[in-house]
Design a protein around this nucleic acid. Structure first.
Lengths: 152, 152
DNA sequence: TATTGTTATACTCTATAACTATA
DNA sequence: TATAGTTATAGAGTATAACAATA
């Protein structure tokens, strides 16, 4: 009845109504905690992402790996340098195409990966504990659905 | 019976099982689309975030504003410089404390904000359209709940 | 002496271009 | 000629330190 403008033109949105804000800060908070949990292992959450792809056999070369991780191939070099120097992984030229580097985890690297992954998983579970039993998987499902629907 | 390891030590997770990956890419995709939709207005999604806080009256000084947005006060200067030069907002010394700058939207700035916000909202709605009627608000609720529970 | 806004500087991260070795 | 890895360089973004005005 009065103030029809209230419903026509909404008031300024609060921060936590803005999806971009929520996604950004949720990601930031989770990454912060994950990095803290991974610090004892001497790796970051980004390193763990690379190790996960390598461990899963999802990349046949450094360039593949860079593509999957969404980083430049030149950035990949330094990232692998550090992990190789730490004895976590090893590079060797591919036998099919000697221009390519096959990247593999060392034995200690594989062990490190599984321990670090377990630590990261614990952080995730703690992070989503407020969502209840099904909430976490529903959240993942929603995010997956959005990404799938908007993939160009 | 065979391969009990399969259930004890899970196989390497797929990318889209990792919450951090999902949050990061969802945020990135949304920001990309929002920035594209805001380009005709000459602002970015970060600018819009600042305009939203200013329009909502949620900051009493540049430092306040920087704090709310989670950026450094020195980074705030350049951001406001651009928007002020564009005639979107104006700075004036506070009457209570002349060290502080009160930041306010100009008339054209307020109009720009509402139009840009409407465009951003359309992008959000399109982005979450795969989630159905309640899905989007459930997603926001889940993200809000996580952030609230993990706020230190 | 402490604080706000500002500037100058340094540092990090990433992207671009050029080089090598292989194909 | 084209591609994979590497290196060197430059650019954007951000943080750190120092300065002027005000409290």
């Amino acid at each position: 009845m009065s103030s029809p403008d209230r419903s026509t033109r909404p008031v300024v949105r609060a921060h936590d109504d803005v999806l971009g804000y929520l996604l950004k800060h949720a990601h930031f908070a989770l990454e912060e905690r994950t990095d803290a949990a991974l610090a004892p292992f001497g790796i970051t959450s980004r390193d763990l992402g690379a190790l996960r792809v390598i461990a899963g056999g999802g990349a046949r070369s450094q360039q593949d790996l860079a593509g999957v991780l969404g980083v430049d191939r030149t950035s990949m070099v330094a990232l692998l340098d550090i992990l190789e120097r730490a004895g976590v992984l090893a590079r060797r030229p591919s036998e099919q195409d000697r221009r390519r580097n096959v990247v593999e985890l060392t034995d200690t690297g594989r062990e490190l990966f599984f321990q670090a992954e377990r630590a990261a998983l614990t952080v995730e579970q703690d992070f989503t504990s407020a969502l209840g039993a099904n909430g976490a998987s529903e959240l993942r499902g929603a995010l997956r659905a959005m990404l799938a629907a908007t993939a160009h």
